[in-house]
């Protein structure tokens, strides 16, 4: 069967399907997709961890 490219790629299911209806959080004037919220939360988390986690001490030279 010859389908259009779009039908063809749709058969390639990723293990986690993000193609469904988008989920959004509404908070007053703020509307944000759960996906973007996760990304931003991860950014804050990674930054805080990078600042707080102890960095392995290297040997001093000189």
């Amino acid at each position: 069967m010859v389908g259009s490219g779009y039908e063809f790629t749709r058969t390639l299911a990723a293990p986690i399907d993000l193609d469904g209806t988008g989920r959004y959080v509404h908070w007053g004037v703020v509307q944000i997709s759960v996906a973007n919220l996760v990304v931003i939360a991860l950014m804050v988390l990674v930054f805080v961890l990078a600042v707080l986690l102890p960095f392995p001490r290297g040997r001093k030279r000189r």
Binding site: F47, L49, A50, F55
Partner: peptide, 14 residues
């Protein structure tokens, strides 16, 4: 092949 000793934080990896 050396760096200042005060570079002691994960933030330098960004």
């Amino acid at each position: 092949d050396s760096q200042p000793a005060y570079m002691s934080s994960w933030v330098y990896l960004f």
